[in-house]
């Protein structure tokens, strides 16, 4: 038996797609370009990365839905290409999104059918389904057809389905998408409990706080390549030697971001709308105090709260995926 629950070794996957009908053209997208990592048994492992980074593709290779173009992967010691049945018996897959459910059936019937497909013994099915409906908070509405479900309700049903057969390894691809804050907190607790109970979890999410709270280790993937791998604390070091200034502003002129970006010492600028205001996040090197320069550049703009803070996982993430983060790259940039 292998020591690891999930082992990915040099995984690659490219997609071919055809466009055009009269003159068909084939385009090849290299979605995953050689990803290697290992997840221990009972570990809660996060996979972060921008849209199109290759997270879902990686998960689909690990859960047997896609065959890698190159590289190998094993789940609980079973090869994902050759021993599909062994792998499938032991994994659960929750995929974020509206689709993937039988619209014309009730939640209960959806779960019944998948309980059958996923090999839940007949005499346990009823109790198990009841338990899961309770867990995801759908009790009382299980008789309604899924077509009338809200987005979050669908997502809860997705989660219940993924857990039906008590999988040893759980792939959660954006499980909290569309779920309200209270339910998201319940979900985080559920995931943490599962991991505490020995289930290995591979989670992707775009919510940094969620990843920070839950994950034992995190891999950041961008452009199909692994950019960083470590515990949340380790990853935050990628933003070490940085200072973050947040400025609340009203009516920032277009082009301001570029202006701020060009200031000496500034390493990254983000702008985010929040109601009537815009929130500017300026990351800078720690030995340069850019605050006064930033405020000068924003001359004439009405400002709200201005604050300096310690870098978070989100800052580290931004540093990593924007490609200039990390001690390893630092010298390159400076040179």
């Amino acid at each position: 038996m292998s020591d690891y629950a999930i082992e990915a070794d040099g995984l690659r996957r490219s997609y071919r797609s055809r466009t055009g009908w009269l003159r068909p053209q084939t385009t090849v997208v290299d979605a995953v370009r050689g990803v290697t990592f290992a997840v221990g048994r009972g570990e809660l492992f996060g996979l972060l990365g921008p849209n199109g980074a290759g997270k879902t593709t990686t998960i689909k290779m690990l859960n047997t839905l896609l065959i890698p173009t190159a590289g190998t992967a094993r789940v609980l010691g079973h090869d994902v290409v050759r021993e599909t049945r062994e792998v499938r018996k032991r994994i659960g897959y929750v995929f974020g999104g509206d689709r993937g459910l039988y619209e014309r059936l009730s939640a209960l019937d959806n779960l019944r059918y998948f309980a059958e497909l996923y090999g839940v013994p007949a005499r346990e099915q009823k109790a198990r389904i009841g338990e899961l409906l309770e867990l995801v908070g759908l009790t009382g509405r299980e008789g309604e057809r899924v077509e009338g479900y809200s987005r979050g309700m669908r997502q809860r049903l997705h989660i219940a389905r993924g857990l039906l057969h008590r999988p040893e390894v759980l792939f959660l691809d954006e499980p909290s998408i569309g779920v309200d804050p209270v339910a998201a907190r319940d979900l985080r607790k559920t995931v943490a409990d599962l991991a505490a109970g020995g289930t290995t979890v591979l989670l992707t999410t775009h919510y940094m706080a969620e990843a920070d709270e839950l994950c034992d280790r995190i891999a950041v993937i961008a452009g199909g390549e692994l950019r960083a791998l470590g515990t949340p604390t380790e990853l935050k070091r990628h933003a070490d030697g940085r200072r973050v200034v947040e400025v609340e502003a009203y009516g920032v002129a277009p082009g301001t971001v570029e202006l701020l970006q060009a200031l000496p010492g500034v390493r990254g600028v983000q702008i985010e709308e929040s109601g009537a205001a815009q929130l500017l996040t300026v990351q800078s090197e720690s030995d340069v105090d850019v605050q006064s320069d930033v405020l000068a550049a924003l001359n004439g703009v009405r400002l709200g709260r201005v604050s300096a803070r310690q870098p978070t996982l989100e800052d580290a993430y931004v540093a990593i995926v924007s490609g200039d983060g990390g001690p390893a790259r630092e010298s390159l940039v400076a040179a």
Binding site: T64, L65, Y93, R99, G100, Y102, Y118, G119
Partner: peptide, 18 residues
Amino acid sequence: RFGTLGHVLLSPRSRTLT
């Protein structure tokens, strides 16, 4: 159409029976 095929194919049970 429903996007369920992937979830069905993840079943470890006999495809023939299914």
